[in-house]
Design a protein around this nucleic acid. Structure first.
Lengths: 150, 150
DNA sequence: GGTAATTGGTTTTATAATGAAACTCATATC
DNA sequence: GATATGAGTTTCATTATAAAACCAATTACC
């Protein structure tokens, strides 16, 4: 492949995000982490990923501060992986992906899972809104350069 | 690589979504499409992607109904690529990725771009809410199986 | 307390995906 | 009508991924 292109310096925030979690496995690992998995073998069994690839992905997720590795027992060498605050901040990405999948990637009668409010069991909504609360779509928005963030 | 693992049959909607757009380039192409790009060479120049890879990615995005290829001129062989309704439905995914990137992947004073409301120039918000409008986070939600979608 | 099994990886090897460059053919441009 | 550009395809070298074997450290079992 002649060294995958890095988007690290790209000024577009989406590009940088994809540089961190835009590969085949990282978001699947993050999804499982949201589901409460912490151990190497849990991820490995759930995803069917090759062990070396999993080890490599966990390493880079930790490097990027998405996961934190901590010894499972005091002084032990065995690790467990937890979402950091930054990692939990990927929640909207996961929800958006999930909703897209739910809407478009299932046959009409095909059984599917759904993300619901723990309190009342009702599906959750993801909305993109202007400051005044008005819902906005792709055509209502523009990307502007902010040279000096406040 | 011994055939990348396909997530097509996975019952998790996020997994299926990642199967469609979870590779290194597809979402970058979609981002450019949201920015109004339609032509092969525009994508190629913007992304610096190899031509054969771009051709391949455009093909699969069209196959998945994210982009539609239409002749640029009546009867001509040259194509242009537009987001379909399904493709535009990836808007929340793009916004979520962008917001994650904005929050975590820029140095404090580093210039960045921002997605704003075309009407008033104010940044847009992405929220995940329960039916009653209460904002919910990862811990407030659960995934449930829905055997028989309505 | 000694042995077996499990966990959490690393190393090795084969193959597929990627990238770069050269090539092709149709379409604009002058 | 010649030249340049657009939109790919083909070929080839290289890298990333997967599978399997291997290994050290824990943990479980008796």
């Amino acid at each position: 492949m002649v060294a995958r292109k890095s988007l690290k310096g790209d000024p577009c925030p989406s590009a940088r995000a994809l540089d961190v979690i835009g590969d085949w496995w990282s978001l699947m690992i993050v999804r499982d982490a949201f589901d409460g998995m912490t151990r190497f073998s849990e991820f490995q069994k759930s995803l069917g990923i090759a062990r070396n690839i999993l080890a490599e992905r966990l390493r880079t997720l930790v490097e990027h501060g998405i996961l934190a590795a901590e010894p499972v027992a005091e002084g032990g060498a065995r690790l467990q992986y937890r979402l950091t605050a930054r990692g939990r901040d990927l929640f909207p990405v996961m929800v958006a992906l999930r909703q897209f999948g739910e809407r478009h990637l299932f046959a009409p009668q095909e059984p599917r899972s759904r993300l619901v409010d723990r309190a009342d069991g009702q599906p959750v909504r993801l909305d993109i809104r202007a400051q005044d609360g008005r819902p906005v779509g792709p055509d209502d928005t523009v990307v502007v350069k902010v040279p000096e963030p406040e």
